[in-house]
Amino acid sequence: MLRKLISGISCIVFLLLMCHIDGPAELSAASAEKPDEIRLEYLYINKKMTPETEKKITLFRELLSGGRVSITGKIADTAKVKAVEVSIDNKSTWRKVRSTKKNTFRYSFRAEKGATYGLLIRITDAKGNTNNIENTFKGITILDRSLYNAVGDALNSMIEAYQGKALGSFMACVDDSFTGEKVEYEKSVQNDFSALNDIIIHYTLNSVTPDYKDKVSVALNFDRSYTVVKTGKRRSDEGSTVMIFRIDNGKLSLYSVRGQPLFGFTK
């Protein structure tokens, strides 16, 4: 009964909130300035569909095929396209790209580590009208550190927070879509903090395997020692585990855990 009541209330709250959600302000403003016929229907950057509202994109260079950023787009069929041009230096220079009969186009460029590219797309129709160029802006940053180092940094942050029993800092490294349920994971880690004192963890990476979309699988060996608060005795153990991190705009957060848990192992 209580369950039904809670789910009912949640649904009502959700629907009420949805009624008050407005579209992004920039979208409405942009459509007022330029005719809506000349617009991008979709845009893929490195095979990932990027909505118009996503303006900042951060990429690891080693995840780029051949070290290149690839852009594929489709222009809405409402426009009779005469020319498509791409700028990667914030409108300083433009390069013409060929569009197909189906109004699609493709462009790629070699990206350098640590560089930032201001991507814009200019579409011109048969009458000489152009799209709202500003709406197509994407700031693409190529990180100057390797994915391997980024994985090490993410693990070090988690271990530092775990050893210092900083629950808030630790959970900030766990993704909201964590597959084992984030709240339950938090409880397990908190249980470790209550049950153990003076935790020391060392690890070595076995493999770092990206899926070239938004995840990376990390296999590692670890050893840890800790004092069990209940008995006051010092213990040490070792094992291996696989952690899957989600990559979102260059930031890694824990998405899933397989095998022997490194954290949250006392519950």
């Binding site: 493999s207 995840k215 699988s217 296999a219 696989v242 397989r258």
Partner: peptide, 15 residues
């Protein structure tokens, strides 16, 4: 070699 294809949560997310 090392291959990681993540299909979906229930089906495949293992290297």
């Amino acid at each position: 070699g090392d291959t990681f294809e993540s299909f979906s949560q229930y089906s495949l997310s293992t290297a």
